[in-house]
């Protein structure tokens, strides 16, 4: 089990449905700062993959560049992983998905990697609906280059050494909703329970699930005046729902009381239940979602939970009408047309 991440909850000899122990989902030791929010997310990813009995060989982990993008090294070592180029994880993930559509993608990015240098690729990825969990570990600053603001830093938020951000933030959740993403959530790395449920639902979801996880930077953005510090987020977090996850293999897992909860099918037979807290927010209403996000920004509230969710839609390989088999392993008999085809074309050109 990863050193700096949390100790596994399951006893070491316990196995999941495919006979794997939690340590089979572990990665190498984290090299992030002690207390980093990202390590909390890593631990929950391990939990969720274990709980869901994901086959590690069927998962690929993709990332760009930055502190967050290092984290795929810290979980699921048995899965292939690609720590690519700053801001370009979406295109690299797209290519991998085209080569082998059967792979489940877990993409980990940061706020700089996604909202600054990678905003163009993020926007276009949302249009493609890859079968992918896209996580932004959002702390509002660049960690590896020592604390510069990113585009998700709130207006008025203070940098460690006093500078104040004077530009409006980019709300990645609002953008994802607007771009047609069918599973958009905002979470807080400190809210273990919600993360565990939401991550399982996101992994089970067929299509792109976008998770903006506020993950404080303990070194450069955890001071008074920051709006992404652990204390500030704890004070301002307003949970939208109690999230429940009903796995496909155990539909009796969760009894639903009529009228109280919403039920969302995730495309693989499993379901997510959403019990609204406070006002009865309807996350299947895209326009309502945008309105609520705008209002919460004005009220300086950090809403966590499922912002927007819809029935799963055709994924990119489906849109492209591709064969079911991975393109990567198609035999030559399929990928090279016969001699008659060449003759036909040559005749047309002669």
């Amino acid at each position: 089990m990863a050193g700096a991440t949390e100790a596994p909850e399951a006893p070491s000899n316990q196995v999941n449905r495919i006979g794997l122990q939690k340590k089979d989902y572990a990665g190498s030791k984290s090299t992030l700062c002690i207390g980093c929010g990202h390590d909390l997310i890593t631990a929950r990813l391990i939990d969720a993959a274990y709980d869901l009995s994901l086959k590690p060989e069927n998962v690929i982990k993709m990332s760009g560049i930055g502190c967050s993008s290092k984290t795929p090294a810290y979980f699921m070592s048995r899965s292939f992983s690609f720590n690519s180029v700053h801001g370009r994880m979406p295109s690299v993930a797209t290519g991998a998905s085209l080569a082998n559509r059967s792979l489940k993608i877990i993409g980990v990015s940061g706020d700089g990697d996604t909202a600054n240098i990678g905003i163009g690729q993020f926007v276009h990825l949302m249009r493609r609906n890859l079968d992918m969990v896209y996580i932004v570990e959002n702390n509002g600053v660049y960690g590896l280059t020592k604390g510069q603001f990113s585009a998700t830093a709130d207006k008025g938020s203070k940098q460690k050494y006093g500078n104040v951000n004077f530009m409006s933030p980019i709300d990645l959740c609002a953008l994802a909703v607007e771009l047609g993403c069918n599973f958009v959530a905002r979470l807080f790395a400190g809210n273990t329970k919600m993360m565990r449920q939401a991550l399982q639902a996101a992994m089970a979801f067929k299509g792109t699930a976008f998770l903006d996880i506020i993950s404080p930077c303990v070194t450069f953005n955890n001071h008074a005046g920051s709006t992404k510090s652990f204390p500030y987020v704890k004070d301002h977090e307003t949970a939208l729902q109690d999230i429940g996850f009903v796995p496909a293999y155990d539909p009796t897992y969760h009894e639903m009381a009529a009228g109280e909860e919403r039920e969302v099918k995730l495309g693989d037979g499993s379901k997510m239940t959403l019990k609204a807290l406070g006002n009865d927010y309807n996350p299947t209403d895209r326009v309502g979602a945008l309105k609520m996000l705008a209002e919460s920004r004005e009220q300086q509230k950090l809403l966590t939970g499922i912002i927007c969710v819809a029935e799963s839609q055709p994924t990119f390989p489906q849109m492209l009408n591709m064969v079911h088999e991975p393109l990567s392993t198609l035999p030559l008999s399929v990928t090279r047309p016969g001699k008659a085809v060449l003759d036909e074309v040559m005749d047309e050109l002669s």
Binding site: I60, M62, F82, S84, V85, R88, P90, S91, V92, A93, T94, G95, A96, S97, L98, A99, N100, L103, Q121, P326, L327, S328, T329
Partner: peptide
């Protein structure tokens, strides 16, 4: 970028 992903994944 898509080629980097696709070539890596065997296409």
């Amino acid at each position: 970028g898509m080629l980097a992903g696709a070539g890596w994944a065997g296409a």
